[in-house]
Amino acid sequence: MLRYQALRVLAPVARRIYAPLLAVWDFACYNAALNSLDKALSHNKNGAAAEALGRIVAAVAGIVQNAFTMAQTAVREIGNLTSRYSAEKVDKVVTTLGKYATWAGRVSGVILAAVNVGKAIEKGMEGEKGLVAAYLVSAALSIAMLVAGGLVAILLFVLSVIILAVITWLEGDPFINWLQRCWFGRGPKTKYESAAEEIDAFGDAFKGVVA
């Protein structure tokens, strides 16, 4: 009974706030991706630029999805306040927005999965097997979200946020990473293949610290 009461109170609140929260999250991802794109372009790294671009598109799709969901909620709330005369129109708008939101979310999932697989390939080339596994888990979660629904989709989203934190932790400090992989590095990681790549990576690591 208590559980039912709690759900009755929490469910409408959750329904109203999850879209704005996800939109903020997507906006943060968009900003991060924009910075990565800027960095990649300044160092003429086409692969990294393409990956950043993918993340930007995915974030934009996510923002669009949540914007549609928020608009849907707003229209529904307004519809509840207005007369029955407008109910038909309100329903039409709500249904359309819902469909767009669902598809935009899935498109975002496809792009994120592709970006994560790309990232896994990149890390694989560097010999970072832990990160390959982590990026593949992240890709798997995005793919699973394509066919999941309801609570399972929310659970998958939470897991993907956790795995992102794990990736950030595994990637570690960019300077330490560079020191381990440079010509004089004594770490277990794969060395940079060329001096140019090493200098570029130094620039990236330095930019990361400054930023």
């Binding site: 496809v110 999965a113 592709a114 697989v117 896994a120 390939i121 694989g124 097997k129 390959v132 593949l136 890709a139 798997a140 793919i143 699973a144 394509l146 066919v147």
Partner: peptide
């Protein structure tokens, strides 16, 4: 989803 999952499989196996 299936296409992506098989791409993941190939990538995983390669590395």
């Amino acid at each position: 989803g299936v296409t992506l999952s098989w791409v993941m499989f190939v990538v995983g196996m390669v590395f």
